[in-house]
Simulated scan of single mutants.
Amino acid sequence: MDFDCGDSRFYKNDENENLICEILYSIEDSGIISIDSTFVNDDYRGQGIAAQLVDRVVEMARAENKKIIPICPFAKGIFERNSALYADVIK
């Protein structure tokens, strides 16, 4: 899924502009990215969309040579279960 980029978030709306999903992050002065929350509309859950959102933030971190602190419980779980995949970006 392709996500739109907004102010400290990646998201996707449906054709009626209803929010399908979003991930909110913040970038600290030190350049550390904090993943603050993920959301997927109930109608779209179970399709791996939240994991795709996390991966989108990881792509951004790698491109910008930044580290990530996953505050969001979902993102934290993804990082813990797949630590080898994210070793280069985890703070």
Rank of each mutant, 00 (worst) to 15 (best):
M1L: 05
M1R: 06
D2E: 15
D2T: 13
D2H: 10
D2V: 09
F3C: 08
C5W: 04
G6Y: 12
G6S: 08
G6A: 05
G6K: 07
D7F: 10
D7I: 09
Y11H: 15
K12A: 11
N13M: 05
N13K: 14
E15H: 12
E15C: 05
N16Y: 05
N16M: 05
N16G: 01
N16P: 01
N18Q: 14
N18E: 11
I20R: 06
I20Y: 01
C21K: 03
E22N: 08
E22P: 02
E22D: 13
E22A: 01
L24S: 06
Y25T: 07
S26C: 00
S26N: 08
E28N: 08
E28Y: 02
E28G: 02
D29V: 02
S30C: 05
G31A: 07
G31L: 01
I33D: 04
I33K: 00
S34G: 03
S34V: 13
I35N: 03
I35V: 08
D36M: 04
S37Q: 10
S37R: 09
T38V: 15
F39N: 02
F39I: 07
V40I: 14
V40K: 07
N41D: 10
D42Y: 01
D42E: 13
D42W: 01
D43N: 09
D43T: 14
D43V: 04
D43W: 03
R45C: 01
I49C: 05
I49R: 07
A50L: 09
A50S: 09
A51R: 13
Q52G: 09
Q52C: 05
Q52D: 09
L53T: 03
L53P: 04
L53C: 11
V54P: 13
R56L: 14
R56H: 14
R56P: 00
M60G: 01
A61V: 01
A61I: 04
A63K: 12
E64W: 04
E64A: 08
K66E: 04
K66Q: 15
K67W: 06
K67C: 09
I68N: 06
I68Y: 04
I69A: 07
P70R: 02
C72F: 06
F74K: 10
F74H: 13
A75R: 00
A75N: 12
K76M: 03
K76F: 14
G77K: 10
G77A: 12
I78T: 09
F79Y: 08
E80M: 11
N82Y: 14
N82G: 05
S83W: 04
L85R: 14
L85E: 05
Y86L: 07
A87V: 11
A87N: 00
D88G: 15
D88A: 12
D88P: 12
I90K: 13
I90R: 07
I90D: 08
